[in-house]
């Protein structure tokens, strides 16, 4: 097994904050690693170091055996990068954006042209290819962005939150494109806030929080740790929560979590609808229930389980939209 990306002891501090506090990663060639974590966990900082955009304060990172500091130019020649902010020129057409990227990878002109056309085709942008990208939708821009990072057929691809801010349908389309790339044998490191996304695309997942990796494993392993699905109740009166806990004792895999502020009861279970029916039977008329359901684990559950607190994802789930420079000013 060849290692495509290797990172050890990566530390990066900005003025007052420690963005990365010693990160170790190893991504075997041809696999996908999902870096899962909330905003501000250090995912983007890690990607920026691995893609030669930022210098670490300590530790080292290599891509295909090339050191990102000493061999930065050779690293750049073998990687493709798609950041959180679509890095396309909005006044160029889709084709011109791809052509420019290809020329800057120093590919021969004729190859760039044919490759650009086939990528536009592949990413469902053939019809829009000769329109300026300012007219594109968010999802189209992201796709163009990824296409640009693929123009030189990179062996290693970095995708920083490829679906953040996309509507659900564009997200699913994007997943299909990424899955197709995986099929072609590209090594991918992708960051995401969504467990579902990591689950769907990644072979291995590393959970990041406060600049550290707090858990790693396959999606199934993490879910097993989180406890799979959860049974949730919302009641009218917080005082009823202990009554619920009493009624449902023994039904869950672990102790329930009682949230008095939100009047919710949550407990890891297994068994699907059968458990749900059993739970409703047991509760019967003992408490007034507003809502009840089975929920599959998400990032919040992973974080609740691993850190005992909720993930600090912004409520609307949107990324920080400030431009790169302001962001740097604040976090430096």
């Amino acid at each position: 097994m060849t290692v495509a990306i290797e990172v050890s002891g990566l530390v990066k501090r900005f003025k007052r904050t420690t963005a990365l506090d010693g990160i170790d990663l190893e991504v075997p060639e041809g696999t996908v690693l999902g870096l899962l974590g909330p905003n501000g966990a250090g995912k983007t900082t890690a990607v920026r170091i691995m893609t030669t955009l930022l210098k670490p304060d300590a530790g080292r990172a290599t891509v295909l055996g090339l050191d990102v500091l000493r061999d930065a130019d050779r690293v750049r020649a073998v990687i493709g990068v798609t950041g959180q902010y679509a890095a396309v020129d909005e006044y160029l057409t889709g084709f011109e954006n791809l052509e420019m990227a290809g020329r800057l990878y120093h590919l021969p002109r004729a190859e760039v042209r044919s490759r650009a056309r086939s990528l536009l085709e592949q990413f469902d942008l053939a019809d829009a290819g000769d329109r300026i990208s300012k007219t594109y939708s968010g999802g189209m821009r992201r796709r163009l962005d990824i296409a640009a990072s693929l123009i030189a057929r990179p062996r290693v691809l970095f995708l920083d939150e490829p679906t953040t801010g996309l509507d659900p349908r564009s997200r699913i389309t994007m997943w299909e494109f990424i899955a197709a790339l995986v099929g072609e044998g590209t090594t991918i490191l992708l960051t995401t806030q969504y467990l579902e996304e990591a689950d769907r695309l990644a072979d291995g997942i590393a959970v990041v929080d406060h600049g550290r990796i707090i858990a790693r494993g396959t999606a199934d392993e993490l879910k097993a740790q989180v406890g799979g699905e959860r049974l949730e109740f919302t009641v009218t009166d917080a005082a009823d929560l202990p009554v619920l806990a009493d009624a449902l004792s023994g039904l869950g895999l672990d102790r329930p979590n009682l949230d008095e502020a939100n009047r919710t009861f949550s407990m890891p279970v297994s068994g699907g609808a059968g458990v749900l029916r059993e739970a409703l039977d047991r509760v019967a008329d003992r408490v007034t229930v507003i809502d009840v359901g089975l929920r599959r684990p998400d990032l919040d559950d992973v974080f609740l389980t691993l850190t005992g607190r909720a993930a600090e994802v912004q409520p609307d789930g949107k990324p920080d939209e400030r431009p790169a420079r302001d962001r740097a000013e604040v976090t430096r």
Partner: peptide
């Protein structure tokens, strides 16, 4: 340009630093 994401693309490409 420096306020846009495009600059990151330029910097991640194996192009001349002066370009």
């Amino acid at each position: 340009d420096m306020t846009k994401g495009l600059i990151d693309r330029f910097r991640s490409l194996p192009m001349a630093r002066s370009a």
